[in-house]
């Protein structure tokens, strides 16, 4: 017995210490790195509304120039400033993410709560509908919406948001059902809490921590989906430079001017890593007990 204790202590004298500290440290690193990455993109997106180094349609920069003090990221094959386009791309990415996640959250939580609270055949009907909606590929749905409404940023956001809402709805339904079965809901109803108040006081706060991470993942997914749609020409039309379209345009000149292809790709990756890390950190903050109902 004592030998075991001794060797354990020798091998790792501060094991207790590190074990108790590790979760907290990881949380703050996630929050910090994610927040910084995501924050930079967000600031760039906001700056693009205030001022741009060049007009997006300014073609006086010379074709396919490498990065220079004047054109920080070089120019494209029409002589337009790439840094300007990257900034506009950041704005479109943020807009897509926020818009799609807002649609997914509002619609998804609403449908999920109705299914969970109503129960019986309404629940069965909604659940079957959700299963069908989830089985439908996002990009296919997006193409249908584009065919219906024409290629635009709004169509892309709507389609991506709709696809995401099905997943959020099912998650909300499952979690809310579990919360509603808890004794504290019964106890709260025992003191006369009505349905709406019950949702606001107990159901939403207990469902919310479960939704943060999926919603954040959807933010990243939405940015990628929009880039994919733009890449095949179904996203926001020119002259709005989405990162996806920049990738597509840079494809033919990638050997001559690689920065035009590398930079939008790097920004996409940075955005998604940033939001995912941020989500991880936020989850730990939102659930102080550390044991979300899953």
């Amino acid at each position: 017995m004592s030998v075991t204790v001794l060797t354990e202590a020798e091998r790792n004298p501060r094991s207790r210490d590190t074990r108790s500290r590790r979760p907290r440290r990881r949380t703050s690193v996630n929050l910090l790195v994610g927040g910084v990455l995501f924050g930079i993109i967000a600031v760039v997106a906001i700056l693009s509304l205030v001022a741009l180094p060049f007009e997006p349609s300014d073609t006086t920069g010379g074709r396919l120039q490498p990065p220079s003090p004047e054109h920080w990221a070089g120019t494209d094959r029409l002589g337009r400033d790439l840094f300007t386009q990257l900034m506009i791309g950041a704005r479109l990415a943020m807009l897509t993410g926020v818009g799609a996640v807002a649609i997914a959250a509002v619609l998804g939580v609403l449908v999920g709560l109705v299914a969970a609270m109503a129960g019986r055949w309404i629940d069965d009907a909604l659940s079957s509908l959700l299963d069908i909606a989830i089985a439908f590929p996002t990009l296919l749905l997006a193409m249908l919406v584009v065919a219906w409404r024409g290629a635009s940023l709004e169509s892309a956001i709507l389609a991506i948001g709709l696809a995401g809402s099905a997943v959020i709805a099912r998650l909300t339904r499952v979690t809310a059902t579990r919360v509603l079965a808890q004794d504290f809901v019964t106890a709260s109803r025992t003191s006369g809490t009505g349905t709406l108040r019950l949702i606001r006081l107990h159901v939403l706060p207990n469902v919310w921590p479960t939704l943060i991470v999926p919603l954040a993942l959807q933010f990243g997914g939405a940015v990628v989906a929009e880039a994919s749609l733009s890449y095949v020409g179904l996203g926001s039309p020119p002259p709005n430079a989405s990162w996806g379209r920049m990738l597509q345009e840079a494809q033919s000149t990638v050997l001559v001017a690689p920065t035009a292809a590398i930079l939008p790709g790097l920004l996409l990756v940075a955005t998604i890593i940033g939001i995912n890390l941020l989500a991880d950190g936020l989850r730990d903050v939102a659930d102080p007990t550390g044991r979300t109902l899953r």
Binding site: Q182, D183, F184, T186, A187, S188, R189, T190, S191, G192, T193, G194, L201, H202, P205, N206, P209, D287, P288, T289, R291
Partner: peptide, 24 residues
């Protein structure tokens, strides 16, 4: 019944940890 519960009848349950909201 929402108006009746609480004022007329209240309840205590078996498992106190489960009968209180963990996040509030």
């Amino acid at each position: 019944l929402d108006g009746v519960r609480g004022r007329t009848v209240g309840a205590v349950f078996q498992e106190p940890l489960a009968s209180l909201d963990p996040l509030m």
